[in-house]
Structure formats: structure tokens, C-alpha cells
């Protein structure tokens, strides 16, 4: 019983790392641009399919093809940014959020139905030769691919953090978050900063999607739930904090798996675990809108 519970928590952390990764992408975009891209989950879905088809058609290992998933999402993100979102840069914050929400919603409708049309509604997953491999530790099973995914997510989040802290471009991004007018007066081209953070956010979604495809499964309708999860985690983590967001993802994963376990023991449906994240989210919104780890001061 205790072992089964611990096993559940491990699964929670493993999926939570992917929630965190996806949410970090969304949060980066929102933090810098104040664009609320509700098509984020669809970007993730596209990344999953890119990886799936590379594997299915040409047997490219999903971990080897990660750069390809990144590149396709960089391109996709750039296209959508230039065609649609770049028109929103000059708007005031409230209008910007509202309009990007509406645009993102249109984009998600398009991508989801395009995927449905092109690739059918079937649930897919990438099954490699090593997919079933598991190693045991203290009687708990650690699926190889999911552990690898967690490590990749961790590396990417750390790399992003270093990029933001150490590089000139990263600092320009952070400056833009704080005050875009002052940043402009430093000679920073905020259009480029916006584009950069938008495509980086899309690329992170793409990686998350590819990892979901190999560790779990993908389907055209998955976007909505991933967007919601990312939003939930973004708010849990406190807007703007990369580390906070990633930890928020793991907390969501843990909460879900714990609830799932308890619901199962109590004879309830497993799907209740989907609800608990949303309830947690509403509670945080109401009682701690600055997030679990955010601080109130600016």
C-alpha cells in the first residue's frame, strides 16, 4: 500500500516535469509579451506529432529527433507570430491579453481540426525498442524514457534560466518584462524580443509534446487540456518565475497522482485527478493570486 503510494508519487513527479516544461514555455511568452497564447497546447500537440512521424516514417529515435521538433515549432511559432500576434504588440495590456486570447483560440481551433483531418483522431504513442525498460529502486519502478524526459526537462529549464540570467539577450528579455518603454530606450528592439520569446515558448511546447509522445500518448484533441494545465501551473508558480513555474508543474503532477490514488482506493473514477488541479488552481487564484511562490512586490 505504502509502496503503491510512493510509486504513484514518482509517476506524479515524472509527468509533473512535463507540465512544468510546458508551463515554463507559456509563462515565458506571457511574462515577456503579455500574449496569452491559448494555442500553446496545440503547439505541444504538433511537437508530439512531429516526433511521432519522424519515428514512424523514418525510424528516427524520438530523443535524437528532439532538435527537429524544436526547429519545427520555432518555425511554426514564427509564422503565427508574424502573421497574427505581431499585430498585438502596441495594444494596452488588457486589450492585448483579450485579443491574443481570442486569436489563440482561433489558432487552436485550426490546428486541432487540421490534425484531426491529417492524422485522424487515433491516440498515438511512440514505441521504441527501449520503451518498456524500467529500473527498480527500493522496490519502486522508474520507467527509463520518463526519467530521461525528466532530465531533459530539467536541463532545458536550467539552460533557460542561465540564458535569462547570464546573456545580454536574456537580460534584454527580462528588462522588457519589467518596462518595455525603458527597455526600448536602452536600444532594445522589443519586436525582436517578443518574437524571440514567442518562438522559444513554442519550442519548449514542442519538446514537451515530443516527450509526451514517447512517455505517454498524443491525440489531436489534447491541446485544450495541456493549455489548461500550463495555465494552472503558470498561476501556481507565480507569473514570471521560471523555477517557480517548473516546481509548480511538479506539484500539479504530485497532486494529481495522489488524488488519483486516493480516488482509486475509495473506488472512485481515475478522471477525478484531472479535476483536482483545476480546483487547486481556483483556490490559488482566489486566495493567493500572486502564486504559491510569487511575491507581491514588483
Amino acid at each position: 500500500m505504502l509502496e503503491a503510494f510512493a510509486q504513484n508519487l514518482v509517476y506524479g513527479v515524472l509527468i509533473g516535469a512535463l507540465y512544468g516544461l510546458a508551463a515554463v514555455g507559456l509563462s515565458l511568452v506571457f511574462g515577456v509579451t503579455k500574449f496569452l497564447n491559448v494555442a500553446h497546447g496545440e503547439f505541444l500537440m504538433v511537437g508530439g506529432y512531429a516526433s511521432f512521424w519522424l519515428f514512424t516514417l523514418w525510424q528516427v529515435d524520438p530523443f535524437v529527433s528532439l532538435p527537429a521538433a524544436i526547429v519545427s515549432l520555432l518555425v511554426l511559432g514564427a509564422v503565427f507570430y508574424q502573421a497574427l500576434f505581431s499585430r498585438m504588440v502596441k495594444l494596452t495590456e488588457g486589450v492585448k491579453i483579450q485579443n491574443t486570447l481570442l486569436i489563440g483560440f482561433g489558432v487552436s481551433l485550426i490546428l486541432q481540426n487540421l490534425a484531426l483531418k491529417l492524422w485522424t483522431a487515433d491516440t498515438r504513442s511512440i514505441t521504441t525498442a527501449y520503451s518498456g525498460q524500467v529500473f527498480n529502486f527500493l522496490g519502486i519502478r522508474f520507467p527509463l524514457v520518463r526519467v530521461a524526459s525528466l532530465l531533459i526537462a530539467l536541463v532545458l529549464v536550467i539552460a533557460l534560466q542561465l540564458f535569462l540570467r547570464r546573456t545580454y539577450t536574456g537580460k534584454a528579455l527580462r528588462a522588457t518584462v519589467e518596462n518595455w518603454e525603458a527597455a526600448t530606450l536602452m536600444g532594445i528592439d522589443i519586436h525582436r524580443v517578443y518574437l524571440l520569446s514567442f518562438v522559444m515558448g513554442a519550442a519548449l511546447a514542442g519538446v514537451a509534446g515530443a516527450l509526451v509522445g514517447v512517455g505517454y500518448s498524443i491525440e489531436p484533441g489534447m491541446g485544450m487540456s495541456w493549455t489548461l494545465k500550463s495555465l494552472v501551473v503558470m498561476v501556481l508558480g507565480g507569473l514570471g518565475s521560471i523555477t517557480g513555474t517548473f516546481v509548480g508543474g511538479i506539484i500539479l503532477g504530485l497532486t494529481e497522482s495522489a488524488t488519483g490514488f486516493i480516488a482509486l482506493m475509495a473506488g472512485g473514477g481515475l478522471t477525478y485527478k484531472e479535476v483536482v488541479g483545476l480546483v487547486l488552481f481556483l483556490l490559488v487564484l482566489v486566495f493567493r493570486p500572486e502564486g504559491l511562490f510569487g511575491s507581491k512586490e514588483g
Binding site: G94, L228, V235, V279, L282, L285, V286, P289
Partner: peptide, 24 residues
């Protein structure tokens, strides 16, 4: 109390909670 984006996301979360709960 939640302005703009939070209101939108909050209501979306609410409807998804009901969707899943009613489905169960």
C-alpha cells in the same frame, strides 16, 4: 476580484471541472 486574464481562465477552469465531474 481577478481581472482580465484570470477571469477568463478561472471560468474556463470552472466549466472544465463541471464537465469532468458530470462525466464521472
Amino acid at each position: 476580484r481577478l481581472r482580465g486574464v484570470y477571469f477568463a481562465i478561472g471560468t474556463l477552469a470552472l466549466s472544465q471541472i463541471l464537465l469532468i465531474t458530470v462525466g464521472n
